[in-house]
């Protein structure tokens, strides 16, 4: 069946800033964010397996490769470029950079968003809880342990201990 769609104007709220963009409704949020220059959101697999394209949609962790942009209209989107105003995320950025949590860096934005999503709900997670929370984010470089340590250390810093 041959059908076609017109590009439409979508009003998105990205990192607290209203953005209007013309896009096909079925275009992946991932691609639209990247057209906006927000290239910190990465494509690793395009099938929701690796988590490199993770963003927060209304505070919930979502893989942007599986979200049509039309479904993001009206939602509050947060990408790695917009996290610096939040202390949890800032701490995660510091501890990932200091402790070996980032190697090649391609999974790092997604990992930090998943880590922040966890700390938001559970400010003092155990290593087992960190493992579960990050199990949708694949990393091929680190063997994960320095990532767990970075999340645990960020949690400690946020708690001020």
């Amino acid at each position: 069946m041959k059908t076609s769609a017109q590009k439409r104007e979508f009003s998105l709220n990205v990192n607290g800033v209203p953005r209007n963009i013309r896009a096909y409704p079925a275009e992946r949020l991932l691609d639209v964010l990247r057209y906006l220059g927000l290239t910190g959101t990465k494509e690793g697999c395009g099938e929701g397996e690796c988590g490199a394209c993770s963003v927060l949609v209304d505070g919930r962790l979502v893989v942007s490769c599986l979200m049509p942009v039309a479904q993001a209209e009206g939602a509050k989107l947060l990408t790695i470029e917009g996290v610096t105003g939040n202390q949890r995320f800032r701490s995660l950025q510091e501890t990932f950079a200091e402790g070996g949590g980032a190697q090649c860096g391609i999974c790092t934005p997604g990992m930090i968003l998943a880590g922040g999503h966890l700390l938001e709900r559970n400010p003092a997670p155990t290593i087992e809880e960190i493992r579960e929370a990050l199990s949708g984010n694949l990393c091929r470089c680190t063997g994960y342990l320095q990532i767990f340590e970075a999340v645990a250390e960020a949690a400690r810093r946020c708690a001020g201990t």
Partner: peptide
């Protein structure tokens, strides 16, 4: 890591 800050902020530019 020298290029760490770019990687954790999403500023690092990969080919795509």
């Amino acid at each position: 890591r020298k290029e760490g800050p770019g990687k954790v902020t999403g500023e690092a530019r990969y080919i795509d």
